[in-house]
Design a protein around this nucleic acid. Structure first.
Lengths: 200, 200
DNA sequence: TTTCTATCTTGACACCGTAAAGATTAATGT
DNA sequence: ACATTAATCTTTACGGTGTCAAGATAGAAA
């Protein structure tokens, strides 16, 4: 039998994945650089060859989770032509993602340190998950022929609701009553049916 | 001049207030029990005479902040008879509270460990801030003569939006575009006008 | 006054992030 | 093929953290 090789192989990727695993298991409060290193079978200072501090590892982990998040959002509206249903499915996917991984919410938005900017002018460099949301919501607005002046506040209202539900169900302090799908369905129905809803 | 007395006087209260001050200054990541003890001019193990853990201090701090939060919400609707304006002011106060103290949001909902339960049956032991919200929202619903079956999902939709805006503006990762007051005003206007639509 | 008890201090321990210095091995140049 | 370089990992060390145990202090009760 041969002992473990001195070099790991692809430690950087392993650290990111092990770190995300640790977040899932213990949450942000149980996270530590040394535990991540141990999970990879490596010394506690080894991560410093790939990240200058723990913050940089957290950021890389955040980017990786963000990719998964974006993919989940995009998948949820794939092939859906009806803008009403698209926005409904997108919101459901948004919330369901954090329902499945509750500790991702505080991690992504309060500890990962990734920068999510949403300038109205610069449409190119918006944060990917939000860009998906933005495009889908705008298609909905256009299909309802709503004035473009209300574009941003309307988009923010929709996004805030979805984000708020995700925040509430992932909070350790709050027990969310009933079913969030009902609340979300209600919001969709009451917010969108000012004009006629269906389009064949 | 006389040296410091061996006994502090009211250390428990001082620790809670110093802890909240530290949260405001450095956020949850800069928080430590030893810093709080030092702020009170006391040894690093002194807090253990009043709290069994750091978690118990955090919980006491959370309760204290929750009282301030509840007071701010109640003050915002004092003497307001119009349910529409009441819910609008309440939501504004909800968000403004966290805008003023951004680090309270992750602290309260992800680190304080306070238990906020909102059973539909037991109306008595609901979490105070939510109780204020609930009562005001129900007055609004009743004034609009909406079916009571939609009570809970409707309430949740409103609460989620306010909570979501607070989550977004306090997130270190997200730069909130434009003015949240516009988004909130938009939600209020478009969410309540199913029967009395006042669109141009 | 004497005893009791709550409160605070000191000291120790394991765990944490981080830096410096050395070991090991892959990559590169000749 | 060999020597040199550069990248990766280990070891050791340091200050900061939560927590516990033992001892010091002083206010309260007897």
């Amino acid at each position: 039998m041969h002992s473990k090789p001195y070099h790991h192989g692809d430690l950087r990727k392993s650290l990111i994945e092990a770190g995300i695993g640790l977040i899932n298991e213990e949450g942000i409060s149980g996270f530590s650089l040394r535990k991540v290193a141990a999970k990879c079978g490596v010394s506690h200072a080894a991560p410093y060859s790939h990240f200058k501090d723990v913050q940089e590892l957290l950021a890389a982990m955040g980017d990786h989770v963000t990719e998964q998040f974006t993919f989940a959002l995009q998948s949820s509206i794939e092939g859906q032509e009806n803008p009403d249903r698209a926005i409904q499915q997108l919101g459901t996917a948004y919330i369901a993602f954090f329902e499945e991984h509750p500790s991702y919410f505080p991690f992504l938005f309060y500890h990962s340190g990734i920068t999510i900017q949403m300038e109205e002018e610069l449409e190119e460099d918006t944060y990917p998950p939000f860009a998906v949301f933005k495009n889908t919501a705008r298609q909905l607005f256009r299909s309802k022929r709503l004035p473009l002046g209300n574009d941003t506040p309307m988009l923010m209202a929709v996004w805030s609701t979805v984000h708020g539900i995700a925040a509430l169900i992932t909070s350790k302090s709050i027990h969310y009553p009933g079913n969030w799908r009902e609340a979300w369905a209600f919001f969709i129905k009451s917010g969108g049916n000012e004009h006629e809803a269906d389009r064949p």
